[in-house]
Design a binder for these strands. Sequence first.
DNA 1: ATGCCAAACCTTTAATCAACCTTAAAAAAG
DNA 2: CTTTTTTAAGGTTGATTAAAGGTTTGGCAT
Lengths: 225, 225
Amino acid sequence: MRILVVEDEIHLAEALVQILRKNNYTVDAAHDGEAGLDNALTGIYDLILLDIMLPKMDGISILKNIRKEGISTPVILLTAKGEISDKVTGLDSGADDYLAKPFATEELLARIRAASRRKGEVLPDNALKFGDIELNTATLKLSTVSKEIKLILKESELLELLITRKNAVTSKELIIEKLWGFDSEAEHNNVEVYISFLRKKLAFLNSSVSINTVRGVGYVLEVKA
Amino acid sequence: MRILVVEDEIHLAEALVQILRKNNYTVDAAHDGEAGLDNALTGIYDLILLDIMLPKMDGISILKNIRKEGISTPVILLTAKGEISDKVTGLDSGADDYLAKPFATEELLARIRAASRRKGEVLPDNALKFGDIELNTATLKLSTVSKEIKLILKESELLELLITRKNAVTSKELIIEKLWGFDSEAEHNNVEVYISFLRKKLAFLNSSVSINTVRGVGYVLEVKA
DNA sequence: ATGCCAAACCTTTAATCAACCTTAAAAAAG
DNA sequence: CTTTTTTAAGGTTGATTAAAGGTTTGGCAT
């Protein structure tokens, strides 16, 4: 269970990190909004503790941003005492919970347990989201809200790679290295075949996600308008 | 963007180098503390990944040393998992961030982006700017604030060359060498054709950037008033 | 200076070539 | 035997090259 703490007061941040580590969580900290957003966008976290007042980018903007990117990691907002409007805005923006500073350690831990429990009900582990699709790398099922289709292992691995690298163009060489191994005999055509398979399944799902070819460079995921 | 990796575990060091190169960073590696300090003191790096436990000289000493010399290159410390005291010491000594081993590739990249952004570098590594245009060499898209157009690979490579050499006149010979390779059969006319293609696309964008011909010498970018 | 010429350069298009796509079938794995 | 992976082949698309004709430039003779 990996937690991201986004808090600019170094003192409080360190305290949080220590408390959480002591309770067997893996913890990373970011001390301003931009760093927090960057970390959050990696999608590797199971929970985010997010201060609202932050340098460079406020917590609400971060929250909206990560939700827009399809990342559904539970977020607990840390609000200054009594800022009710903050709380409302936060929940509207996709927060799961809020916690007024100062707070008791036990309350924090309780809310974390609650948030992660809630998440477990909604989204299975190993689920990756991009646009309107969700890929479960454990069950190899690719789904939209209305449809679902089974992938085979290589298809899932390929799509997983493309989703985790959604901001970059992924070359066939990299794909071969990741799916077939460093010095395999696999040809470009192997990649093309699986790209073709995936496209067919995306079409079947009527997904707005498509795989874009950048000739001479590689492939990149795209959400059609 | 040039990164120095100081890490004594050859295996991890090599992995880091490969990952970073693949993400378009220029990377050098040092395998012990003294070599690391020497390299760091050159001041040519935009970022340093610094292991704490190193033969000959530990990472914290290196860090203090380069800060004492007035070098403000962002430093990300690589710490063994859970060594909080390391982290505190590290931050007190002038580190920008720390990363616990083992770490996810994406997290590493995110922290690098965050660190370089903090330093003032805003653009992703494969975005090049000149005048009112921005070229993304990964997606091959050329854009102004209002418009965007797709380039093909050779066009992008050519424009990239012109942008990186914006203060010099770039000869057709050099262009041929860079885009077609050392002893290719390519003619001057091949270059002229792609220059023509690029000019057409710049015109489409209504960009203030134009490609200036210096007769007998080569081409140079220019921003119209 | 003026006009002419040759060289350098520009632009467009058609043909060629390489990258990519798709499908089917063979081979391998389970 | 079924499912997955690999190989293979033909088709399609789009990039590259080559070629031709037009335009600009600068040198040079007048």
